Simulated assay, not measured.
Amino acid sequence: MTTEIPAPGQVFLAGPMPRFGLPRYLGRQVQVAPDAPIGIFGHLSCPAVLTPSLLAHVPRTAIIRDFHCVTTWTAPRVQWEGWRFADVWAALLAELAQPDVTHVMVSAHDGYQACVPLEELLHPDVLLADHMNGAPLMPAHGAPLRLITPQLYGYKNIKHLRRLEFLPAPVTSLAGRFLSHPRGRVDLEERSGTGVSRFWRWVYRTQLSGYLRGARALSERSLRIAGP
């Protein structure tokens, strides 16, 4: 759902959505073949791969939703197109998963990963997206396929999907609990596992202008490298 009022603690951006992420990932240039498969591992009857030919059997959908970064900016009314995770789950993954699966470790080709509750992934707005604003995803925004969870902060919206590992319990590091929340819901301001959401809102807001300058510079550099 999109709104005319920002989510709690957020401000609307003017202009295009910048590339976002932790500094050690922001500058990484990732080039992945459009038909690269996604590995499926973990608590399953057997490992599997998710390929474009399998996704072709799942209906496509498009949504328009606000996109929320934990650093307090929101890109309003971003259009995403791809496959609902719930549809992919029902058509291809549910029969492989063990009954005790509660979380999925989502990993990217750039090395980033995040643990997401299966319950959140089955939300009807969650997509495996390959298009953004009417055009194929570019590398700066997660090509060839990325996870979109509009109800969660951007750190749960993993770019450059590489593998899904199905788990019977959440997995996170101490640093991960400090820098992110196990769930990351926007409406509850779950910015960090430490709680104190208003403190983290203040911390991010004081750094926002500098962060956006750096992120936009990286986006422009990515566009130059990617070419037309």
Rank of each mutant, 00 (worst) to 15 (best):
R221H: 06
L93P: 11
W89E: 15
L167D: 13
L26Y: 03
H68N: 15
E95W: 11
A14H: 09
V104H: 06
E119N: 14
A135V: 11
A14F: 01
T194D: 06
P18G: 05
A108P: 06
L212V: 08
I5E: 10
P117K: 04
I5G: 00
I225C: 00
S53A: 15
W200K: 05
L161M: 08
T51I: 04
W200H: 11
A215W: 01
P182E: 06
T206N: 10
W80N: 03
L145Q: 01
G27P: 01
T72W: 02
F41T: 11
R221T: 08
R201C: 10
V203F: 15
F12A: 05
L164I: 13
T149K: 02
Y155H: 14
V196R: 09
D87Y: 10
A129M: 04
I225V: 13
P16I: 07
R65L: 07
H141N: 11
K156W: 07
D87K: 06
V32M: 03
V171L: 11
F20P: 02
R216S: 05
S192T: 13
P8Q: 08
L121W: 11
W200Y: 15
A91H: 15
Q31W: 04
Y204N: 08
I158W: 07
D130V: 00
I225G: 00
L92P: 03
C69G: 07
P16C: 03
R224G: 01
W202N: 05
R146P: 03
I225Q: 08
Y112C: 09
F12E: 04
K156D: 08
F85R: 12
G227A: 00
E165N: 08
L161H: 01
R198L: 02
P124R: 12
R28P: 07
V106L: 14
D66A: 05
G9P: 02
E120S: 15
V101Q: 02
M138G: 12
L26T: 04
D187R: 06
F41W: 08
V104Q: 07
A48C: 14
D187H: 06
Q151S: 15
R205A: 14
F41A: 14
H109Q: 07
A97N: 12
W200G: 11
F67C: 06
W89F: 15
R177Y: 12
D110P: 14
G214A: 03
L50Y: 13
A108E: 02
S53G: 10
R24T: 11
A75F: 04
C115Y: 05
V116H: 12
D35P: 09
F20M: 07
G9D: 12
M132F: 01
S192K: 06
T51M: 05
E190Q: 15
V11Y: 05
V104I: 14
G227V: 03
